[in-house]
Design a protein around this nucleic acid. Structure first.
Lengths: 117, 117
DNA sequence: TTCTCTTATCGTATATTTACGATATAAGAT
DNA sequence: ATCTTATATCGTAAATATACGATAAGAGAA
């Protein structure tokens, strides 16, 4: 079957999973690094430094855009991409917050003791 | 085709992608929340609160374990799972570090200007 | 207009992920 | 020894992701 059970989880759980999924391929991490690095952010420049075809890079760009982590604008014949820092930092904060909350909870609880081996 | 190109990316890019992939399904986020919350961490307790079958939950637990985010020990007939905070926090820090470094770089650069629309 | 250049999308093949039921395994109870 | 209980693994079906070449679409040059 492999039915989609994602809607059975909370909004927040899905939000974190969606953000993480956007970062779950090294090519997309590499694209974000390149976008932060280059001062023109032209699609072709990204393709040039990636070990992937133009169409595959375009697909990864689309996924990052859908996740809200980057923005793209058309500049004549080419497209210019930028990191959407507002969203990216918001997502990062959500991720950090949830784990620091969990840590606090976990510290006050006697959980299974893992013996050193 | 769909050849695996992951080894063409850097160690760090792959490390981040692997961590993100572990968090890229809401069920695995839910498991981490449950592990932080319950004070017994028995596999069956997790299965009970999840909208998934025992075998599927077991599979997700295995992935979290492979990513180093949780640890499991056998306690008689059942298994007890715990969050591996040391690894989890290390991975989170790596993620935070890379983006704060990128942000610093990006701030000093004239990137494509996105017009407000 | 026609040619070229750039990027997005389509079609498609393959790989991986997700999900479940069935089964194996191992511990504890009877 | 047999039964039960708990969990991991196997087998498998379906969904999704990854990757590429081909093609479409739109801009700018000739």
């Amino acid at each position: 079957m492999a039915l989609n059970k994602k809607q059975e989880f909370s909004e927040l759980q899905n939000q974190i999973a969606t953000f993480a999924k956007a970062l779950s391929h090294p090519a997309r991490v590499a694209i974000l690094e390149k976008l932060a690095d280059c001062n023109k952010c032209i699609c072709g420049d990204i393709v040039e430094v990636m070990p992937l075809s133009q169409s595959t890079v375009s697909q990864h760009l689309k996924e990052l855009k859908n996740a809200g982590l980057i923005q793209g604008i058309i500049e004549g014949a080419s497209s210019c991409y930028c990191i959407n820092w507002e969203n990216l930092e918001k997502e990062l904060e959500t991720l950090n917050n949830i784990f620091s909350q969990l840590k606090t909870k976990n510290d006050s609880v006697i959980c299974c003791v893992v013996k050193e081996q």
